[in-house]
């Protein structure tokens, strides 16, 4: 039996629904020794800002139960260096390249970034990172407010025809409200979840394990939270959802499709097993065959339960 794994996200045609999440895959070159990158559904780059960013001071990571904390603080070489040093490698892969972008102090930086990127065909889609919890000095995230989310997505939608993905934060009261705001503003898709805000303390030293004190939790520890948010958003919006948060194997990937995701992203699991994304791609195909499901798209939101 031949099964279909291809999906559409906005204008993007993905050969399969498995992507790699921003910040966990560098600019892909770091993983070229481990997997055939062309097999991925899409690659989401580490977030790029207009100017280079140094990021947060070390220590930046620590292990937590079934996961980890990070506070990298959006370290990146800036737009110019990305276009010159990173994009040429990505372009050659021939698969959709989704560029994650963020603003620093002023959300208007998004506009300038998007205007510049409109000229680059190699950038297939844009993921708006309005949910990074690790920018110091920032009191709240754009994605913690419906109006702020709506207005930034709307202003970007006006100036670009590229596929827009809005990445949402789980650190909110009701994620479906934010997802709806992104949808109404013209986002082609929402990606959820970004990391959960958290901290860890070394009791002997009575000090935080991260220099920034707080950071973002990722890994299987957050999977139940992520899954519930995908399900909640799926019930309230019509645009596709890219589900992520603690996926480490085929069965955890499947959970997200069943909850309502049209595609998934592998994040922290890339650190433990750099081959995990391609293993999941073949695992999904195997599951569909075994279940006699012809198309991965019919798995999305296929949760069976009595209400």
């Amino acid at each position: 039996m031949k099964v279909n794994l291809s999906v559409k996200i906005g204008k993007l045609k993905l050969n399969n629904p498995v992507m790699v999440a921003s910040g966990t895959f560098g600019y892909a070159e770091e993983f070229k020794d481990f997997i055939n990158l062309k097999k991925l559904g899409a690659i989401v780059t580490k977030t790029i800002t207009l100017s280079p960013r140094r990021g947060n001071p070390p220590a930046r990571t620590c292990e937590t139960p079934s996961g980890m904390l990070n506070s990298i603080g959006l370290e990146n070489p800036g737009l110019e260096a990305f276009l010159k040093d990173k994009l040429p490698f990505l372009e050659k892969l021939g698969i959709p390249i989704i560029m994650s972008i963020a603003s620093e102090e002023d959300p208007r930086e998004f506009i300038e970034l998007v205007k510049r990127l409109n000229r680059y065909k190699a950038v297939s889609g844009l993921e708006l990172n309005i949910s990074c919890p690790n920018v110091m000095g920032q009191e709240s995230l754009i994605s913690q407010d419906c109006q702020a989310t709506y207005s930034i997505v709307k202003s970007i939608r006006r100036i670009t025809a590229k596929t827009l993905i809005t990445k949402l934060s789980p650190n909110v009261t009701r994620i479906s409200d934010i997802a709806k705001a992104a949808q109404e503003a013209g986002s082609d898709c929402v990606a959820l979840i970004n990391t959960l805000s958290g901290m860890s303390i070394n009791a002997e030293k009575q000090s935080p394990r991260l220099a920034a004190v707080v950071g973002g939790v990722s890994g299987p520890a957050i999977r139940p939270v992520a899954l519930k948010m995908v399900w909640e958003a799926y019930n309230k919006i019509n645009i596709p959802i890219i589900g992520m948060g603690g996926i480490i194997d085929t069965s955890s990937a499947l959970e997200f499709f069943i909850a309502g995701a049209s595609a998934i992203s592998i994040g922290t699991a890339n650190f433990i097993n750099p081959r995990v994304s391609v293993e999941i791609i073949s695992g999904l195909g195997g599951y569909l065959k075994r279940k006699k499901i012809k198309d991965i798209r019919s798995l999305t939101g296929s949760l069976i339960y009595e209400s």
């Binding site: 560098g26 580490k46 990021g55 930046r60 990070n70 990298i72 370290e75 650190f271």
Partner: peptide
């Protein structure tokens, strides 16, 4: 985090 230069941790 990753050991291969990707996570900047």
């Amino acid at each position: 985090g990753c050991g291969i230069g990707a996570c900047l941790g």
